[in-house]
Write a protein that binds this DNA or RNA. Structure first.
Lengths: 198, 198
DNA sequence: CCTACCGATCGGTAGG
DNA sequence: CCTACCGATCGGTAGG
């Protein structure tokens, strides 16, 4: 006897998560527009029409994938911050390491977060995506605000540049390389920390 | 009497450039995959089929737009470097300012340079795009190599982080804001320069 | 969750 | 450079 079915929005895991994971991987490599509903369905062994039993639209798949990415990175960063000490730069370092190891790690969800697609979508979809990211970036806003920056360095620009340097790794990082994501993260933080700690 | 027609690859300006500019603007805002050949044609008042008198394929339009973007940014940076002095950090500053003012300026070509699409395309197209960018990034490779960095800072990672911070501005910069691209560039360079100049 | 299908749109071509 | 069109594919739906 099969388990009862809930409404589509339910937290019922199973196939729904499989679809989201496959979709995230395709969105990350091919891009959202170039990924067809049939591509996604094929990856999980479904017919394209069957996806609409789990989701209402392709946009919903994107939104849910994006939300999962934000959730995962948020969880990783918050866990790292619990174990980090009190030193502001150590905390930024821990957050960046968690951010980058998640972003460059095996889970495809986080990569859905970084493309610049906001511009190309309708404002309703774009706003939803930006809201999700915004709550995550608030962590960095807070970390930077607790850190003493030299005069003349704008905290917002500092945060955006740091996140830019981190996220830009997706452009050039190749898993087989010499440097691990953690090593890269530490060194990027090092670049941003220089002279600031006396 | 109309001017004679050359082969398609000729440097014959006119409509060809109009098509490239319209295409670049659409690629930058909607993305390559989400931009149709009909979108481009409509922007320049042509029928979609007529584009194939000027170009062999949609990919060729992308490649040529991308090449124009690289050309423009390269020209801007090189011109800035001619007027810059000998101080390595001044030269990096001048290059970054030229890079960012072009990237955030009115010409849409440069924005075609920054998306991370390489992954999503076939290797032949991807290789061609990467080669074009690579020749441009060589300028920054050279500028960084002429600059004294503190021990423990890898020049490649420094360059990639700097370009990442600059290019990431496309994600958040809005033309109406308080800060000009030149101001933003100077301050980003400031972040990367700290403590390095004693 | 599948079968079968919808209208719309895609990149590209022939023929002028 | 346009008209008219090609086969392929798109997101999504009905009906079971």
């Amino acid at each position: 006897m099969k388990a009862a079915r809930f409404t589509k929005g339910a937290k019922n895991g199973g196939r729904r998560d499989d679809v989201l994971e496959a979709a995230a991987a395709l969105f990350a490599t091919k891009g959202y527009a170039a990924t067809s509903i049939r591509d996604i369905a094929q990856q999980v062994g479904l017919m394209s029409g069957s996806l609409y039993y789990h989701f209402e639209s392709k946009e919903e798949i994107l939104l849910d994938s994006h939300a999962k990415g934000v959730e995962q990175v948020t969880a990783a960063v918050q866990a790292a911050l619990v174990e980090a000490g009190d030193n502001p730069w150590d905390r930024i370092g821990a957050a960046c390491r968690a951010h980058l190891t998640t972003l460059l790690g095996p889970s495809p969800f986080s990569q859905v977060m970084t493309p610049q697609f906001p511009q190309s979508f309708e404002s309703s979809l774009r706003d939803a995506l930006l809201a999700q990211r915004n709550s995550y970036e608030q962590i960095f806003r807070s970390l930077v605000s607790e850190t003493a920056l030299p005069a003349g360095i704008d905290p917002s620009l500092f945060r955006l540049s740091l996140l830019g340097a981190l996220n830009w790794t997706l452009t050039w990082y190749r898993p087989g390389g010499d440097d691990s994501p953690a090593f890269i993260a530490d060194n990027i933080v090092n670049i941003f920390r220089h002279r600031l700690d006396g």
